[in-house]
Design a protein around this nucleic acid. Structure first.
Lengths: 206, 206
DNA sequence: TCATAATCTAAACACTGCTCAGACTGGAGA
DNA sequence: TCTCCAGTCTGAGCAGTGTTTAGATTATGA
């Protein structure tokens, strides 16, 4: 079952092991799920001995934290470009675009996403960079809501965050696909309708 | 660190080991987090040898699946009683109550909740009972939405499910508390406002 | 009463995270 | 250019894990 991508390398030193460990780990999560992730396995995938990763990460949680932090950074970029893409449009459209971007991120970068909201894996209390990167991502949403001139920006900001997160989680867990099948609907279409629902709700709710 | 709750028992047979394993496991998740859960540890907590659980569950995933399924059943009950508690009120109020009940469940039964949405732990494809119990819970929400006479019940049902789930996840991860602290707001109040937001949005969005 | 099925123990296997002594080597200073 | 040294990697080892298996114990029901 194990895909040994690692050619035997000719140099004793790897050169860019830290980066390759991160990539191998993300690939592993995407291919076989997070349950398949072990430091030894990742090391094997990178063609390196079980002890080698410990020269680049103090422990397993640190590797996952690095993935998590990078994920939040990429999410922030995606959200920013989704919101800033079409200036002059209504705020509600921006909201719908932001939520859509959130869900799209979860699907495109499922390896990162699956680690980002699992505190027991990345131990964010030990790795504040994750917390900061997460705050930056949320700030995109709260800033957006602030500009909307809504009655209770805090509540709406949280609602939005929860919504994007919930949709992304249900999509990744396969619950959305299951429900769509039960309703004889296209999953992508169902998702799009749900996202559209949000923009409309906020539009009139202002 | 390990709390040895198990008195040495006098009988060779335990009597109700299956039940006690489930309880010990839930307790362990609530007390020390899901990362602390191992079958051996649970067995120790129940005062039994490492092999004993295998006479009641085929593997570790089966134990977690049992917890997950039971969690979904309890969630269904909670949702039903939240929705059916005050007949004659508006549908939007029911929606707010349902979401509030969802979040309350996640907090009160955090041990169960943390397992319910982690497919890599409970392997629902091997344990269809989990899937069925989950569908029953979702059905309460979709039935509720159906009664609302909303334009796109499927989309709203998914939205609602995602919202409750997202709020619950953010609450359990401590993200909500962090954000509330940053805003100098009371977490419970912030949550209540977010939940209220939903009811209002749906009310006018019919 | 007594065979049978259910339950439990103890030992074993391969795996895991992590540590550590030692082997290796790229690059800075002589 | 040589030499050393800090950073990198290996390999063995420890304790803990999930799971299987043979055998001990006990409840059940014919």
């Amino acid at each position: 079952m194990e895909v040994n991508r690692a050619r035997k390398r000719e140099t004793y030193h790897h050169g860019s092991l830290r980066e390759e460990l991160i990539e191998a780990c993300v690939r592993l999560i995407e291919d076989e799920g997070i349950a398949a992730v072990s430091l030894r396995r990742v090391a094997r995938e990178a063609g390196v001995s079980p002890g080698a990763p410990y020269h680049h990460f103090p422990d397993r949680a640190a590797l996952l934290s690095a993935i998590s932090a990078r994920g939040f950074e990429m999410l922030t970029e995606d959200l920013l470009s989704a919101v800033g893409a079409s200036p002059g449009t209504s705020g509600a459209d921006d909201v719908a675009r932001a939520v859509a971007a959130y869900v799209a991120f979860a699907r495109r970068r499922s390896g990162h996403f699956q680690v980002m909201f699992r505190p027991e894996l990345s131990e964010p209390e030990k790795h504040p960079a994750v917390q900061e990167a997460g705050d930056a991502a949320l700030k995109v949403l709260t800033d957006l809501v602030d500009r909307l001139g809504v009655a209770d920006p805090q509540a709406v900001g949280i609602t939005l965050w929860a919504l994007g997160h919930g949709l992304a989680s249900l999509t990744l867990d396969g619950q959305l696909a299951l429900k769509a099948a039960a309703w004889d609907a296209d999953p992508d279409d169902l998702l799009a309708r749900a996202v559209g629902q949000i923009g409309r709700s906020l539009d009139v709710g202002h």
